[in-house]
């Protein structure tokens, strides 16, 4: 009885507030736009019973999805989200690896503090961290002031409201997700392997390239997934730092819903976004499972 309660309550909660809403999104994605509230037809009339359900099924169609393929805005937005997420993930990897490596080489008594320093920004508001870059990247911002002062540039750089600002924003906010898994694999790495490599005539750089880098691959892969997956659906960063020409699917969905009030198209966009993300999510979980088995 008690066990039933323990399982049942969270189960029902998640069914009602996680799974059922998805069914509704799918249903509305297959509905027609209408100017009423809610702005879509048909609505499933449960009171009409089986006949109502059949009636409802017969009215479903895929025209919203057809619409998505016809208007090239959506194609470009999906492609550009994947592109922006991939480039940001790559930059994050380049930035995070030396930091994780430095942490793993640091004296043991420093490591908890260094870990804390990496995790702490994660606790401060995401929105504020993104916002803090406006003052740095804008035309009269700190970065341009600094570069003009050093004489490296004579004209202020235009970074704010471009894709570059979005890359920087994503790298900055998701960096801890890249550092931590890489650090975890580097920390476990057996130092005697490196000594062996050097005894056998490797230079430090060669030892790094032939031993450290391959052995840290699981951490690198995990970090890349942890940055890439949320970055694809990102809304806050492109809408604050990006410009009007920065296309990301999270922003398109938001505008479709709040500005155009086209609920069926917004739902169809959501369904396809989910389908795009299913592949990396499944790959990530399989990689994690393999890793756990390897550790055990």
């Amino acid at each position: 009885m008690r066990r039933l309660f323990l399982i049942g309550v969270p189960y029902l909660w998640l069914l009602a507030l996680f799974l059922v809403p998805f069914g509704i999104v799918l249903k509305i994605a297959l509905s027609d736009t209408a100017l009423a509230i809610p702005p879509y037809t048909p609505t499933l009339d449960l009171a009409a019973g089986w006949a109502g359900f059949k009636d409802f099924l017969s009215q479903l169609d895929f025209e919203n999805f057809v619409w998505l393929t016809e208007d090239d805005l959506y194609w470009r937005a999906y492609l550009s989200s994947v592109k922006i997420a991939a480039i940001s993930t790559f930059i994050a990897l380049l930035v995070a690896y030396p930091i994780a490596y430095g942490m793993a080489c640091a004296p043991e008594e420093w490591r908890p503090t260094l870990m804390m320093l990496v995790i702490l920004p994660f606790w401060t508001s995401f929105l504020i961290r993104v916002y803090s870059w406006i003052g740095i990247l804008s035309t009269e911002g700190f970065l341009n002031q600094f570069l003009l002062w050093t004489g490296l540039i004579s004209q202020p750089l235009v970074i704010m409201n471009t894709d570059w600002a979005v890359y920087i924003g994503i790298v900055y906010t998701y960096l801890p997700f890249m550092i931590l898994p890489i650090y975890a694999t580097l920390e476990k790495l057996d130092g005697s392997l490196l000594e062996a490599a050097e005894d056998l005539g490797c230079s430090r750089l060669q030892a790094f390239w032939l031993v450290t880098l391959p052995l840290s691959r699981p951490g690198v892969i995990a970090g890349c997934f942890l940055v890439f997956i949320p970055a694809v659906g990102e809304f806050v960063i492109p809408s604050i730092l990006g410009g009007s020409r920065t296309l990301m699917i999270g922003k398109v969905l938001w505008d479709e819903f709040f500005a155009n009030r086209d609920w069926p198209v917004a739902s169809a966009v959501a369904v396809i976004l989910l389908l795009i993300l299913v592949i990396p999510i499944v790959l990530f979980q399989r990689q994690q499972q393999r890793q756990q088995e390897a550790d055990a």
Binding site: L17, F18, P38, G233, G250, L274
Partner: peptide, 20 residues
């Protein structure tokens, strides 16, 4: 259902709950 919300884009979670 426990693990999926961790990786779900927020726009989708928000949209689906609103429609519910």
């Amino acid at each position: 259902m426990i693990y999926a919300p961790l990786v779900m884009p927020e726009v989708i979670t928000g949209l689906s709950l609103l429609l519910l």
